[in-house]
Design a protein around this nucleic acid. Sequence first.
RNA 1: GGCGGCAUAGCCAAGUGGUAAGGCAGCGGUCUGCAAAACCGCUAUUCUCCGGUUCAAAUCCGGAUGCCGCCUCCA
Length: 477
Amino acid sequence: MSIRIYNTLGGKKEEFKPIREKKVGMYVCGPTVYDYSHIGHARSVVVFDVIARYLRSQGYEVTYIRNFTDVDDKIIKRANELGVDSLSVSEKFIEAFCKDMDALNVQRPDFEPKVTEYIEEIKAFVEKLIEQGKAYQTDGDVYFSVESFSGYGKLSGRKLEDMEAGARVEIDERKRNPFDFALWKAAKPGEPFWESRWGKGRPGWHIECSAMSNKLLGETFDIHGGGKDLIFPHHENEIAQSEGASDKTFARYWIHNGFVNINQEKMSKSLGNFLMIKDVLKTYHPEAIRVFLLSNHYRSPIDFTDKAMDEAGAALDKIYSLLERAETNIGAQISADAPGDYWRRFCEAMDDDFNTAKGLGIVFEAVRNINRSLDENAEMTPELKKQIGSDGSDILKIGSILGILAESHQTYFGKKKQKAIEEKSVDAAAIERMIQERTEARKSKNWARADEIRKQLEAMNIILEDRHDGTVWKAER
RNA sequence: GGCGGCAUAGCCAAGUGGUAAGGCAGCGGUCUGCAAAACCGCUAUUCUCCGGUUCAAAUCCGGAUGCCGCCUCCA
C-alpha cells in the first residue's frame, strides 16, 4: 500500500515515492520567534509531527528539520520595544516555543537549525547566485532577480505579468522587477549584522530555508511543508533561489496546512484575537488540543470554539474511559503492539493524504465495539480477553501516531480530578467521606439520604458513578 | 483586479464514479433503588441550486449563488 500526498505543486494527490528507498528528507518552516506561539503554530507543528510519526511507523527513516527564524525585522522591532538585543528576544521565544510544543507532546525534529548558525552557508548561497547572474547588488542589499528563473510562480499558480496589475507592491527603484526579493539586507544603525562582501548586513527572509535545507538535506529532498500562507511569496521564492542555484528540483512534495480560525474569524492583529498555546493549555488538556486539531483534514480551515474544544475533550475522556474499562476487565495493562484490523484501517486512512479525521473515526468504532463486547459478555473468557487486549492495543498504536493516549488512564483521570480540586476548590477528602456515607446509606436502602448526598456533590460539579466494585467520582466538565 | 479553496443532518465532520464513516446534541429503549457510564434504536431517500456526461455522480464537466483564503516577512 502506498501513501498518496496532495502536492501543492501540481494541485493534486500523488503517490509518494521518496528519492532514496525508505528514506525521507522533510523540511518544515518553523516560527519567527518574536512572540509566544499561537494555536495556528500548534496546528502546523502537530500536523507535521503526525506526518513524521506516521512515515516512521511505515518503515521510513525520516530526517525531519524545522527551523527557527531568529533574525528578522519583527524580532528587531520587538527587541527595540523591550530595550534588549534581538538575540535575547529570539532565545526567550525559542525556549517558550519548545516548552509549548513539549506540552503538546510534539516529538522534536532531528534538526532545529537557527538562521544565526548558518550565516556562512547563507553568504555562500548568495554569492553563488550573484556569480550565476541571478542576483544583483544595490548599495548593501542583494536581490534575487525573479526574471532569471523561468519557473517563477509555478507553486502558487501566478504569473509575473498578472501580478503586476495588483499594484499592492511598493515600487522600489533599485529593484529590476518589483517582485525581486532581498537575499541580503544592509544593516541599519542599531541592527544586528554580519560582515560580508556586500558590507554589514543580515540574511533576507527566504534565503535561510534554501541554505539550511541544502546543507542538511541536499539540493533535492522529499517533503517541504508549512502553513498555507507561506506558499506565496516564501515558498515560491525558496524554489526560485534553490532551483536557480542548483538547476535541480528543490522539494518534490509540497504540503501546506490550513488555518485555525477563532469563532469563525481569522486570527489577526487588528482583531487582537491571537490565541496563544500557553493560554489554551491552561484550560484544556494538551491531548484534547491535538484531538481537536486532528479532527479535521489538515488542509481544511478549522474553527476554534469552546464548544469544539469541549467536544474534543469529551472524545478523549471516552477513549481513556474505555481503556480503563478494558484493562480492568482483562486484568492486565494494554500495550501498543501486534497490529490488528483497526490499525490496518487507520493506515489506509493515513495513506490517503494523512486523513486523521477518518482515522479518529476508526478509533471511535473500536471504542464502541469493545464497549459492546464488554456489555454483552459477562464472562471474561480467555478468547475475549485476547480480543479486547488486541483491539485496545490497536487504539494505543493509533494514539502513538496521533500523539494522544500517551498517559495511563490513572494519570489522565487523576490529573483531571486534581485540576477540579484546585480550580473548584473542592476537598477530595470531604468528597470521599460523603461518598462513604452515601455508600452506607445505600446499604441500608436509605435512598433519600443517598440521593441527597449525590445532589450536594452535583452542586459541586461532581458526578458519581456507582459501579459493581464501588462508587467513583468525576469532575463535571 | 489576479489566483486558489469550500458548500454533506440541529452542530462538527469523513467521503473524489457504485448507492451517505465518526463525534456532539436530542428523543425512545436496555441496565440501575434512582442516576451516571455503556450499549441498542431513531434523527440526510439525500449531499447549496440549475443544467450536462454516464448503466451509475455528494463525487466528473459547465453555469449560478453564498462563504473563505492568498496576492501585506501572519502557521
